[in-house]
Simulated scan of single mutants.
Amino acid sequence: MKLKPYRIGYRTMKTALGAAIAIYLAQLIGLEYYVSAGILTILCIQPTKKKSVRAAFSRFVASMIAIAFAFVFFELGTYSPAMLGLMIILFIPVLVSLGFSDGFVSSAVILLHLYDAKNLTAALFLNEVMLMMIGFGTALLVNMYMPSIENKLASYREEIERLYSSMFKEITIYLRQGESDWSGKELVEAEKLLDKAKALAYQDVENHLLRHENKYYHYFDMREQQLQIIERILPKITALPVIVGQTQLVADFLEDLSEHVHSGNTAHHYIDKLERVKANFAAMPLPDTHEKFLAMADLNAIIQEMETYLEIKQTYKGFHNKKGLKAMPV
């Protein structure tokens, strides 16, 4: 049997380190059930900083509610397995209704400590609070380090721009020759890459406690809207009944666009160019056959779609280059 390759990641390392530190600290100050500090730490190590903060808060609140339940059911009732089971039956719905259901496991750890002690004293209460502070606090501390994903996001951005450039070049070839052997694979690749890129960009947002947005996420979202336009114009292009004079105007524009899908050109520049294309389009002779009329109608629809394509880009704030100037890829 061949074993799957496995690589120890940052989260695994942080979980191991955090559990060891939490147990050491709890044991150092002489807490009862000190090993549970490691368990609480493990439960709070999350993929992102914001998720760790939310997890720690949820687990702390759930554990405090558990202590209140223990006082009512154990101290005012009895310390018995039946009472423990009844309490859990009532405790879980309360956590769910309050939105702290993900804190049940950590709160169950605290509950079992109280059940085992058979006496909820002030000293035991303080012991459990200290366990939570050490366990959750250690998890938050070790999870503050997150490796940078800036380079990965930048590579996604460059690859998406390359795919868009390639698609426009293929469209240009079809407009000029009336045929093409393009498989459309770049379209599929772009869709998949945008999904991955947006997910990674969202993860970057979650790793900054005071940041609620990400420049790359907005960028990939903008590119996704543009991709929908490319998908809409492709059927119109492949359905052109004949090649007319106006086809060359659109082909020239798209060829120019394909060579400048990067961070050095403004959308406004190409909107101006598109206006000149529209003016030249209107100045050309009217169609003398039904097929030419249909072709011109489709080409006009393509021009309108490309105008929307550029307007979407124009509303995007853009990146800042090293000199602090906004870079606006088309």
Rank of each mutant, 00 (worst) to 15 (best):
M1G: 15
M1Q: 07
M1K: 10
K2Q: 10
K4H: 11
P5G: 03
P5R: 04
I8F: 12
I8V: 15
G9W: 08
T12M: 05
M13N: 08
T15R: 02
A22H: 07
Q27H: 08
L28N: 11
G30L: 11
G30C: 14
S36V: 06
A37D: 02
G38K: 01
L43R: 01
L43Q: 06
C44P: 03
T48Q: 07
K50L: 04
K51H: 12
R54I: 05
S63Y: 07
M64W: 03
A68G: 05
F71Y: 13
F74T: 00
G85K: 04
L95Y: 03
V96D: 08
S97P: 01
F104N: 01
S106W: 05
S106F: 05
S107T: 03
V109Q: 06
V109C: 05
V109Y: 03
I110N: 07
L111S: 01
L112F: 14
L114C: 01
D116L: 08
N119H: 13
T121E: 04
F125R: 01
N127P: 08
L131Q: 02
M133Y: 04
I134Q: 13
N143Y: 08
Y145R: 06
P147C: 13
E150T: 11
E150Y: 08
E150C: 02
A154E: 12
Y156C: 08
Y156F: 15
R157E: 14
R157L: 10
L163C: 06
S165G: 15
F168G: 00
K169Y: 12
E170P: 05
I171E: 03
I171S: 01
Y174P: 01
L175Y: 08
Q177G: 06
Q177V: 06
G178A: 02
K185M: 13
K185E: 15
L187P: 00
V188Y: 06
L193P: 04
D195Y: 08
K196E: 15
K198L: 11
Q203R: 14
Q203W: 11
V205G: 00
V205I: 15
H208L: 05
E213W: 14
K215I: 12
K215T: 13
Y217K: 05
Y217C: 01
H218R: 05
R223K: 14
E224F: 09
Q226E: 14
Q226P: 06
Q228K: 15
I229S: 05
E231Q: 07
R232Q: 13
R232A: 13
T238R: 13
V244Y: 02
Q246H: 10
T247W: 01
V250A: 03
A251T: 00
F253N: 02
D256P: 02
L257A: 05
H260V: 12
H260L: 09
V261C: 04
G264N: 08
N265R: 06
T266C: 03
T266H: 02
A267M: 10
D272V: 10
L274M: 11
R276A: 14
R276Q: 15
A279M: 10
A283C: 09
P287R: 01
E291G: 08
E291F: 13
M296R: 12
A297E: 07
L299W: 02
A301R: 04
Q304N: 14
E305G: 03
M306D: 00
L310K: 01
E311L: 15
E311T: 10
K313E: 09
T315I: 07
F319A: 04
N321Y: 13
M328I: 00
